[in-house]
Every structure is written in structure tokens, then in C-alpha cells.
């Protein structure tokens, strides 16, 4: 009984925090999404107008589809780029200090501000940017590639660069934890390097992939700054819609977009956690 009391006492700060700053705002957001929105005011009279408008408008529903498309592309590319890096750090670097040093190197870009990191892509990707100049100088292209900046591609490039480290970290951690004797045993049992990767390393690194995917998902789905900075406001994600709606005091509409985003994120996280039981693996 005493220890039960102590458990609740220890849990209470966390529970209070989550209740006030997560559960309550979430409920409020769902509630507000059903309020009646007029041009300049909002009334707590329940209606589904905002929801109907959201799903019947090409602009908003299109933004949802675009957000999902960009998110899945970024997720796939971060995994594609991040996994080999994590595999190298976790499996091929035996020295723990060097492993840590390389992981720290991955986060060096985070020593500068988010906006600088995003905006730094402009002189790289622009019509007269570094990439076009170099490609033209070495004669690979005659005219600059225009698709590099202010397009969906530039948004994807920027996001991959920013978020790939969140994929590398958890995967490298899981791969680094794989006992060398497992690899030795598999080799001794006659397995080739590819089989060892497919049958041992890959399944054992899956919790890292799941955690990395959750990190990237949560961050990319909530994104708005990279999209507006690198697309010249041409690519609107749900995050950008929320910002615009809040800016024009359309709270109900912003709440609808917020709820939709939350549902997408929660569904993805739930599915991922169904695939791998993190509690057993970590």
C-alpha cells in the first residue's frame, strides 16, 4: 500500500504535465475543430462545416496528400541514405570512441540554427548555385537545372539533409549493440556476409529503424519552415496551412488540419509499434 502511494507520488508530476500540456490541448483541438468559424470570429457552436470544407477543398485535401507524399519520400530516402552510414558506424567501426565521434560529426549541422541550415541550400541549389556552376564547368550540363530549387525536390533534399541524422542515430545504436559473437557464429555456420546482413543484422536493427522512422515522421509531418524556405512558398504542407489559418484567425480550420495531422502520426506510430515490440528489444 505504501509503495503504491509512493508510485503515484513519483508519477504525479509527469501525469500532471501530460494531462495539462498534451491531453487537454488535444481534446481542446478536437473540440475547436467542430466550432463554427466565420470570417473574423469563432463561436463554440458545434458544426462539421470545417471538416467538410477541409476534405472537399482541393487546396487543403491536396496539401494533405502532398504532405503524405513528401513525408513518405523523405522517410524512404533518409532510410536509404542513413542505414548504410549507421551500418558503417555500428558494425565496421570497432573503436567505441571513434563510433561516438562519428555520431557527433553527424550532428555538427545542428550546431547552427535551423533556418541557416535550410537557407544554406539556396546558394547550393539555385539556378546560379554551386551545383549548377560545377556541373556546367565540368561540362555535364549546358544549361542550369532549374528543378533543383523552389520545387518539391528542393524541399525533399533539404528535409533529408536535416532529418537523416535522426534515422542514423537509433539504427547505429541498435547495430552497435549486436554482439560480435553472433556474427562470428553465423559465419561459422556457413552464412555469407549478405546472408548475415539479411538474417541477423537487419532483423536485429529493426527497432532502430522503427524509432528512427518515428522521429523522422513526427518531425516531417509537423514541418512548415523547410517547405516555405526552399519552395518559395509554392509547396504547401499541412504545417503551412495551419500557420496560414492561425495567422488569419481561422482557428477551427487550423484545428481540423491539426487533428488530421495528429491522426496520421498516431496511426503510423501505432502501426510501427505493432510491427516491432520495442519494449522487448530495447
Amino acid at each position: 500500500m505504501k509503495s503504491n502511494k509512493r508510485t503515484w507520488l513519483l508519477l504525479s508530476p509527469g501525469i500532471t504535465w501530460i494531462l495539462f500540456f498534451l491531453v487537454a490541448p488535444l481534446i481542446m483541438m478536437i473540440y475547436v475543430s467542430f466550432w463554427t468559424q466565420t470570417t473574423f470570429s469563432i463561436k463554440p457552436e458545434l458544426t462539421v462545416t470545417s471538416w467538410v470544407n477541409f476534405f472537399s477543398s482541393d487546396t487543403y485535401f491536396g496539401a494533405l496528400l502532398r504532405t503524405i507524399r513528401i513525408w513518405l519520400t523523405v522517410l524512404f530516402v533518409t532510410l536509404l541514405v542513413g542505414y548504410p552510414v549507421a551500418l558503417y558506424i555500428g558494425q565496421f567501426i570497432k573503436n567505441k570512441t571513434l563510433q561516438t565521434a562519428l555520431l557527433v560529426t553527424c550532428v555538427i549541422p545542428f550546431w547552427t540554427s535551423f533556418l541557416i541550415r535550410v537557407l544554406a541550400w539556396r546558394p547550393m541549389l539555385g539556378k546560379e548555385g554551386a551545383i549548377n556552376i560545377v556541373l556546367q564547368k565540368i561540362g555535364i550540363i549546358d544549361a542550369p537545372i532549374e528543378v533543383l530549387l523552389f520545387t518539391e525536390l528542393s524541399v525533399i533534399i533539404g528535409m533529408v539533409q536535416i532529418y537523416v541524422v535522426f534515422m542514423v542515430g537509433p539504427i547505429a545504436f541498435m547495430i552497435g549493440r549486436i554482439d560480435g559473437s553472433l556474427i562470428e557464429s553465423a559465419r561459422d555456420l556457413g552464412a555469407s556476409s549478405w546472408t548475415i546482413f539479411r538474417r541477423i543484422i537487419l532483423p536485429l536493427s529493426m527497432p532502430g529503424v522503427i524509432v528512427g522512422a518515428i522521429f523522422v515522421t513526427v518531425m516531417v509531418l509537423g514541418e512548415f519552415a523547410t517547405a516555405s524556405a526552399l519552395s518559395g512558398r509554392k509547396v504547401n504542407l499541412l504545417g503551412n496551412i495551419i500557420i496560414t489559418q492561425v495567422g488569419s484567425l481561422k482557428w477551427a480550420f487550423a484545428a481540423v488540419a491539426g487533428v488530421v495531422l495528429t491522426i496520421v502520426m498516431a496511426t503510423f506510430v501505432a502501426v510501427m509499434l505493432r510491427i516491432v515490440n520495442l519494449r522487448n528489444q530495447l
Binding site: S181, L182, D188, G190, A191, S192, T195, I200, L204
Partner: peptide, 27 residues
């Protein structure tokens, strides 16, 4: 055959699949 000191069993496989590993996956 090499039996490791700390057994080195594959934690994501059950007993049967651990034993069958060499038969199924040897090069």
C-alpha cells in the same frame, strides 16, 4: 563447428530456427 563461450544464440529466432540456421542459410 565453433561453439562460442557465451552461446551466441540469435535472439530474434526461436530454438528451432536457431538450430536450423546453418542448414538453411549456409553458402
Amino acid at each position: 563447428g565453433f561453439v562460442q563461450q557465451k552461446y551466441a544464440l540469435f535472439p530474434h529466432l526461436n530454438v528451432f530456427d536457431n538450430i536450423a540456421f546453418g542448414l538453411r542459410h549456409r553458402e
